[in-house]
Amino acid sequence: SADYSSLTVVQLKDLLTKRNLSVGGLKNELVQRLIKDDEESKGE
């Protein structure tokens, strides 16, 4: 998976916004949300 932890919070929020995901929470939560979304989209 992508190394989201190396991105800035601003970059993470931009990715979340593009996916229509919540941008609330700490950086670690944003990273986990993106990883979870990646895993769910692979399952389709």
Rank of each mutant, 00 (worst) to 15 (best):
I35F: 05
K36P: 01
E44N: 13
V23H: 07
V9I: 13
S6W: 07
R19E: 03
S22V: 07
L21W: 00
Y4D: 02
L34P: 01
K18Y: 04
G43F: 12
V23K: 08
G43E: 11
V31S: 03
T8P: 06
A2S: 12
R19F: 00
S22T: 08
K27E: 05
G24M: 10
V10L: 11
S1F: 13
Q32F: 02
L30N: 01
S22L: 07
G43I: 13
G25S: 02
G24R: 12
K18I: 09
K18V: 07
L7I: 04
K13I: 14
G25F: 01
A2H: 14
L7G: 02
K18Q: 10
D3I: 07
N20A: 07
K36N: 11
G43T: 13
V10Q: 15
E39S: 09
G24C: 15
E39L: 14
E40V: 11
E44C: 15
R19A: 03
Q32L: 08
L30Q: 03
V10K: 14
L34I: 05
R33A: 06
L12W: 00
E40L: 13
L26H: 13
R19T: 02
I35S: 06
L12T: 00
D14I: 09
Q32E: 13
S6N: 14
S1H: 14
D14Y: 07
K13A: 06
D38H: 04
V23I: 12
E40F: 10
T8H: 05
L12I: 06
D3M: 07
G25C: 04
K27A: 06
R19K: 05
D14W: 07
L15V: 06
E44G: 13
V31F: 01
D37C: 08
E44W: 11
V9R: 04
Y4C: 03
Q11G: 05
D3C: 13
S1K: 15
T8N: 09
T17V: 11
L15S: 03
K42I: 11
L15F: 05
L21D: 02
I35C: 08
L21N: 02
L30G: 00
N20L: 06
R33K: 05
Q11E: 14
K42Y: 10
L15T: 04
I35N: 06
K18S: 09
Q32H: 08
D38Q: 04
S5A: 14
V10E: 15
E40A: 12
V23F: 05
L16M: 04
V9H: 06
S22E: 12
V23L: 09
D38Y: 05
S22W: 05
D3A: 06
T8C: 07
L15G: 00
Q11S: 06
T17C: 12
